[in-house]
Amino acid sequence: MSAVLDLDTTTNAPPPASRARRVMPGFGLTLGYSVAWLSLIVLIPLAGVFIKTSELGFDGLLRVWTDARVLAALQLSFGTAFVAGAFNALAGTLVAWVLVRYEFPGRRMIDGLIDLPFALPTAVAGIALTALYAGNGWVGQWLTPLGIKVAYAPLGIIVALVFVGLPFVVRTLQPVLAEARVELEEAAATLGATRLQTLRKVLLPTLYPAMLTGFALAFARGVGEYGSVIFIAGNLPRVTEIAPLLIVIKLEEFDYAGATAVAAAMLLLSFVLLFAINLLQAFAARRAGRVR
């Protein structure tokens, strides 16, 4: 102790002040409150999923996860979310491009409408889409003669997830497109690139990371989506029964452990996939960085 103090006494400096080390007030209060509230509302309840799952034991867990109905539901949820996310990545890029790059009447209103899927309750979207795509609906009546079944088929789930996921892609891409510097395109043009070459080699590579982010957000939302899907899906076990619905059904049968096991599978699969997408994104960002 005294040896440590000696170092300071040589310069006649006092030991560091013992009062709070922060100038800005409120650190302890906001840290305590934020962490406590986060833990109570989010972290501890979420941990419950994994604790409950572990109660099943490995065999029990495997039994739930390999159940044909569960497998079909997981496959359906992830598969439709993937297709809808990919479709949105392309269509959303088109919409974002048009909204950022072109002037046309009603542009501001369309731009505001993009967030409709965020604001409209999912149940409302669900019944509206079902009414449209049912066999006698506005759209369905034209598709049925062609042999295309949307409502009460996997295609209907995809339609609902496209609706729900669109804003994620558009809102992710808009700022990136708005910031893309026109000089880059001008530079490419002065170097003799045609417009198509400029788009393909200069502009698009800078968009890939944002497209992937938008895809990942739409995909994650699609996997867990419930309200907009259950009305249009038809909910036939092993055919159009999504994983979140299966959780609800198991809960209604008081099979808490089974419901939790499905939930855990969803969380884990989402985590693995999002991690993979993150890696891909880092890779795309690096490539985009190199192009720039």
Partner: peptide, 25 residues
């Protein structure tokens, strides 16, 4: 962690409270 609830299915968001406060929770 604050963003975590956005990446959880709404159904699972309900489920976690059933696990904590439900009859068998």
């Amino acid at each position: 962690l604050i963003d975590l609830p956005f990446s959880v299915s709404p159904v699972v968001s309900g489920l976690v409270y059933v696990l904590v406060f439900g009859a068998q929770g």
